[in-house]
Design a protein around this nucleic acid. Structure first.
Lengths: 243, 243
DNA sequence: AAAGGTCGGTTTGTCGGACAATGATACGAC
DNA sequence: GTCGTATCATTGTCCGACAAACCGACCTTT
């Protein structure tokens, strides 16, 4: 006859307020773009002080459920932007001592199927965007930082063509973590640029021809190349990533 | 001679404070478990009001960088927990009208390679945990909610065996989104339980034998089965997931 | 009538101070 | 040493206040 008691949880008011508002956003009672009521009004409705409401708002803000539109006072309901969410994921991974190897492995798993799906699902517009992204990388011969960014953008354009948000959001943190090391690699290994350029060209071709097999294969090589580049640039794959 | 002006960004103090503290956590000046200075002390150091500090803390709290340890007053530095981060991802996906099909596709891409890696990398302890998870699923014949949870736990144990945090964090939102629909499926399609049980057994065998090919194959079938189950249970795959 | 200027009301960002509740801690009793 | 107690420190919440800036309406000018 041992009675089990549930752990008693004491939730501060600011958390309850945040939860209440958050729920209304999740269930779409509050729709995107709509403006939130003024803080004083919220305080009145919830029967708490404005300071408490503000603490709740900060929580929602950092979750991305509400956003302060640039140069605007009132906060607006919003859907969390993918890059912001991914940044949280990246931070978590960095703090958990994720290694370059782990990121590379994940890329190796994710990207080829993404390319395959992209070749299958792409629209003409998707293709154009991928080609444009590849073009921007090829055009920019000077700034490595910019070039690394272009590489990430190319991946994004491919993933966009796959028309699967889940994949996009899974991929994003990887790109964020990859970018700094790409810079280093392209600085140390100049010939990597032309290899990347070639892979991008082949991938564009595969997308154009809707050739999933070729897309998968080239993406595979592309990612494998990164690893080789890292090794040549003497980036220790076992090393943890310092954002 | 058109001069481009950078967009002027005005950052509120609470955001700056949050960024400052966050940075110190990221660069490990503040280590995990360490306790944060009192709010008044922080307010003094930053030269702002305590209310402002508190708003910043709420932001850090919801990012998971600081945490209120249960039954403790002072806030402590922490690393964002994977499940909390993943919850943010799930929320984002739900709000962006992700469909069951998208989640299923992502699972189909992620899980087989994960199983493959798990068979290769698993330690004896990993194997034991996977077997135990499978056992818990097989044992619980009554409560569907619990059973769905066990299924997710089995996936987690497999992924843990792969020893790659990135994959774990990529997988987690999928599991969170999957679980409710699994409940529905197991309610509607009673025979799905035995199919799942069989797949889990085969996967455990593959892990035991370190047979990556078999692991990949069975995981593939396992995930494909889910889709079939959904169809039999008349869950429309094109439908958006309502968490 | 469209573009630009003025003006008052609203809302936010920040501040100061206040107080109750409750962990944390030191201290004395046993 | 362990226990109970008193004191302190810190957080959660409240109140009231004010400047800055945005918003919207109204007015002027061409």
């Amino acid at each position: 006859m041992s009675v089990e008691f549930d752990q008693i949880v004491i939730e501060p008011a600011y958390r309850k307020v945040a939860a209440a508002i958050g729920e209304r956003i999740l269930d779409r009672s509050l729709r995107e773009g709509e403006r939130l009521p003024p803080e004083t009004e919220l305080a009145r409705q919830f029967g708490v002080n404005r300071s408490t409401v503000r603490e709740a708002l900060r929580e929602l803000e950092s979750t991305g459920l509400v956003i302060r539109r640039a140069g605007s006072k009132r906060m607006a309901i919003s859907r969390p932007q993918h890059d912001a969410v991914a940044e949280g994921v990246s931070r978590a991974l960095v703090l958990h001592d994720v290694t370059y190897l782990e990121v590379w492995e994940a890329l190796m798993i994710l990207e080829p199927p993404i390319a395959e799906a992209a070749a299958r699902e792409r629209t003409p517009a998707d293709l154009a965007q991928a080609v444009a992204a590849a073009g921007r990388f090829a055009a920019d011969n000077t700034d490595t930082a910019q070039a690394a960014h272009h590489v990430a953008e190319f991946f994004r354009s491919i993933c966009k063509a796959a028309h699967n948000q889940v994949l996009g959001l899974a991929q994003e943190p990887l790109l964020q973590l990859l970018e700094p090391s790409l810079r280093v690699m392209m600085d140390q290994v100049p010939q990597s640029r032309s290899r990347i350029e070639a892979a991008q060209r082949r991938l564009c071709d595969a997308l154009r021809a809707r050739d999933s097999d070729s897309a998968r294969t080239w993406m595979s090589r592309h990612i494998r190349d990164f690893r080789k580049g890292f090794e040549v640039a003497q980036i220790d794959l076992q090393q943890r990533i310092t954002s």
